[in-house]
Design a protein around this nucleic acid. Sequence first.
DNA 1: TTTAGTGTCATAATACACTATGACACTATC
DNA 2: GATAGTGTCATAGTGTATTATGACACTAAA
Lengths: 124, 124
Amino acid sequence: MEFGDHKTIFLQIRDWLVDQILTGKLVPGDRIPSVRELAADIEVNRNTVMRSYSLMEQEGIIDNRRGIGFFVSEQARQRLATDEKAQFIEEELPKIIHQAKVLRLTLADFQPLIQQLHENENQQ
Amino acid sequence: MEFGDHKTIFLQIRDWLVDQILTGKLVPGDRIPSVRELAADIEVNRNTVMRSYSLMEQEGIIDNRRGIGFFVSEQARQRLATDEKAQFIEEELPKIIHQAKVLRLTLADFQPLIQQLHENENQQ
DNA sequence: TTTAGTGTCATAATACACTATGACACTATC
DNA sequence: GATAGTGTCATAGTGTATTATGACACTAAA
């Protein structure tokens, strides 16, 4: 896992885990790395990981069992699939459209994306 | 001008001015607001605006004339049109494609963007 | 019951973005 | 020359993300 300097670390950790859930690498019921373990792995402080987990627990995508650890919640994937998509379309897409306009981007520039969209359609 | 909490203020100021240049609201030779004036306008500290201007000067998109102010450089628009586009395609687009994949987004979801791209083509 | 592994909380220290403010050199204009 | 407007630099203070570290309650397993 790599960190960018544009976004705060604890949010990047959250995004990284959300990604694992959305791609199915983590499924409901799976245990995620302990606070200390992940902190050591990615060379970050315990408290920073704890902050990510607290946020995700509050979002209802992971559950905590006292003395044991954190687990992907049952509703996690469906909840994320809905919320993250809505957020993307409402907040990210408008920015992308604006960028496409001012930078005069073409269909050719977006060819890789369009191809991905076609693949998505075929996989339904 | 509004500030988001996701990005640092001095970079948002830079983005806002870059946008004005790319859309032609500011053209080469135009004087941009003085450090003090813009700071007062958007209710931000002088030093923060100064930091944005210093960055943009270093990027070669604005020039300084001692005791007078900052002006949009001659190469600004062309330089931005090239660099910002390259940066978008190399850094932003891959993230968008990845999001489209994990969120299983469809062509319908991206319809507004595709329409914008068609408008761009027709305007060439 | 002991041990090791969990989350959790509290404290202090560091780094950095941002603010507040004053001072100075430069330029144009009256 | 005086004045007002430029950028520029320096200093100090605030807020917050992150680090470092210790301590405690809980749980599972030896």
